[in-house]
């Protein structure tokens, strides 16, 4: 019951953990002309949810389980699973930065052994979904709620960035997000089917276009977003 409230807080773009400065590849996609309007954006979001969204949801769900029985070795192993599922170095760095900021913020909101042990086990910053799952556990969420929050933020960040960068109608973009509800549920479901600690079977969907966008973005001179 506390889990619902915590999930809302964790998924809220107003959570002060640095998420507002990440576009999930949308800024570069806008720059190269891959997103020019609502139709492109809808396809981008659907693709992102089906790939990076599912992977991040699965990692968050697994991290939420670890958070219930935290141990340094388990955090390090799960973080390594995240590492090998994020191919682009630019994305890895962005993910670790977001994870570090999220742990810092949520440790003050939900002081807990889960987050303390993660901060000690991965001191330079755990990957964002691992940090999100740990925070979800600290806040009283179930793995499914952690997965939902992770999948949800994987599409809201680029959607908001596209509104800012292209001046799209924000109501129309929210309709696009609402249309993703069934896909979001599917992603959370897929994220939670893996047996505890058998992490080699966690989803590892690749999104080469997102990888390339992330790498190009890092080399673009004029950037408003970190990623």
């Amino acid at each position: 019951m506390h889990g619902d409230m915590a999930m809302l807080l964790l998924a809220d773009s107003r959570l002060p953990a640095g998420g507002h400065a990440h576009s999930g590849g949308a800024e570069e996609a806008v720059r190269v002309g891959a997103i020019t309007g609502p139709e492109d954006l809808a396809r981008f979001l659907r693709g992102r949810l089906a790939t990076a969204g599912v992977v991040t949801a699965a990692l968050a769900a697994a991290a939420c389980e670890v958070g219930a029985r935290p141990a340094p070795e388990r955090w390090q192993r799960l973080d390594a699973e995240a590492d090998c599922r994020i191919s682009a170095p630019a994305q890895r760095e962005a993910s670790r930065t977001q994870g570090r900021l999220l742990v810092r913020t949520t440790r003050r909101i939900w002081p807990s052994e889960a987050l303390d042990s993660l901060a000690l086990a991965v001191p330079d910053g755990a990957h964002h979904p691992v940090a999100l799952g740990a925070a979800a556990a600290a806040a009283g969420c179930e793995p499914r709620q952690a997965a939902l929050a992770a999948a949800y933020t994987s599409v809201t960040a680029p959607a908001t960035a596209a509104v800012r960068l292209l001046g799209l109608d924000p109501v129309l973009v929210h309709r696009l997000l609402a249309d993703l509800a069934p896909a979001l549920n599917d992603a959370a479901h897929e994220a939670c089917v893996i047996q505890a600690d058998d992490w080699s079977d966690l989803p590892a969907h690749a999104a080469p276009a997102l990888d390339l966008l992330a790498e190009q973005h890092l080399r673009t001179e004029v950037r408003l977003f970190v990623s």
Partner: peptide, 16 residues
């Protein structure tokens, strides 16, 4: 970097 919103980065979400 401030994601189009410099005031957000100094007031509402100061994490970075």
């Amino acid at each position: 970097q401030t994601g189009c919103c410099p005031h957000t980065a100094i007031r509402d979400d100061i994490a970075a």
